[in-house]
Design a protein around this nucleic acid. Structure first.
Ligand SMILES: [Mn+2]
Ligand SMILES: [Mn+2]
Ligand SMILES: [Mn+2]
Ligand SMILES: [Mn+2]
Lengths: 219, 219
DNA sequence: TATTATTTTTAGTCTTATCTAAATTTATAT
DNA sequence: ATATAAATTTAGATAAGACTAAAAATAATA
């Protein structure tokens, strides 16, 4: 049985792997988990010994099939609990990540399958991230961000990067949520900012950084 | 902040204290938590140092007000989660204890208060045990068991001791649940068994041990 | 290519929570 | 009252997971 710490590492490696290709660096994991590189090395070796990761000294780590399967179970739990917290308990979307970070470690397959059913088998979490099903099947992660759009382009918001409460509260403030329609009216080369109409309202300015954190479907 | 283990010990001492008066023995805690006496001594000393328990060497331990308050928070969480698992997710009452044993350690006061509201502020858990409110107020534990009744007595089932899945499944099988009306029709001195009508049906036999594990309201 | 800088690993320490075995205290029974 | 039994505590060991500091390997640069 996996410990809480092992689960956190597996999920972290899974996430990093889906953002880049090739092996994952020790330091990237350490940054992501806010721990030290030495601790990461220890854990990587442990995961490799358990057949959950393939690891070559100094070259980085990758999940094995077995490891990815376990990681997906944790992701599934995390995202289903997030749906529960927002849809059923009325939490705002910026408050649920930390709580789901704990709930994702509750051991019970029956529990999570019943929760899935209770929530009517949601396909996406409150931030727009896809939820793996009971077999570990998961829709592809969104890839296109607002930042690739040109003036005149119209899109729908489908996902926000869910780690930062700052970003989510900012989106709340400017009335952007999942499904919101955006139109890019201008791009300012000088600072990389975008002028964007939210639901055909008056244009507002979004920084590059914000634009890179909003996943969209281009229309 | 309390660790999971500290919370388990506090809850355990709280439960033992409510069943007996005076200080709680080291061995009683060890038995209840399925651990060793030496481990219990260590933890008791730790809890005493944190001001959560009062402890006299060789004489046993009691919770301080502060310790009891913390224990009640854990009990509240445990029982609210049990209600959720049974009422919302459709678990049978014999399956929820172990899962609640994990869920009770999730840290978030907001979460538990929202869950409480979501469940419409239940006063009792699926086993009939009282649920502490947000201020730590809790109804008295049931005290009267079926075993004190005499032939001719009629009662309502209000609570089952929730630790044993064996007992709960047995009660399911003989159609006893919370609220069920029972009538004692006979008591057999020889083996201490009771003959009982369940909802005015045909009498069935219950052992002393079962009778001692069913809390009732005498009518 | 040689030298420096960065990354990663190893070695050794710390904390929490266990355990076993031994010592000590308290309870029980002659 | 004394001896024995039971309960409890202490001492010392172990395992997981984290840390710091030092060593080793890899990458970047002159
Ligand atoms: Mn987590
Ligand atoms: Mn999310
Ligand atoms: Mn517990
Ligand atoms: Mn219960």
């Amino acid at each position: 049985m996996l410990t809480q710490s092992e689960e956190n590492y597996l999920k972290c490696i899974y996430h990093l792997s889906s953002k880049s290709n090739g092996a994952i660096n020790t330091n990237a994991i350490a940054d992501s988990l806010e721990t030290k590189a030495a601790s990461v090395t220890d854990m990587i070796q442990k995961l490799a010994n358990k057949g959950l990761a393939s690891y070559v000294k100094y070259k980085g780590v990758n999940l094995t099939n077995k490891g990815e399967k376990e990681a997906l179970k944790v992701v599934r739990k995390h995202r289903l609990w997030e749906v529960f917290l927002v849809k059923e308990l009325g939490f705002n979307w910026d408050k649920v990540h930390d709580i789901a970070e704990q709930l994702e470690h509750i051991k019970s397959t029956t529990l999570i399958d019943k929760l899935d059913k209770f929530l009517a088998y949601p396909k996406f979490d409150p931030h727009g991230d896809p939820i793996p099903d009971a077999n570990g099947e998961i829709a592809p992660n969104p890839t296109t961000t607002l930042s690739i759009l040109k003036p005149g382009d119209v899109c729908t918001v489908i996902c926000a990067k869910d780690t930062s409460s700052d970003l989510l509260l900012f989106l709340d403030r400017i009335n952007i949520s999942l499904g919101t329609q955006l139109e890019v009216v201008d791009y300012l080369e000088f600072d990389g900012s975008y002028s964007v109409k939210v639901d055909n309202g008056n244009p507002i300015t979004l920084s590059t950084k914000v634009a890179e954190n909003i996943f969209i479907d281009k229309l």
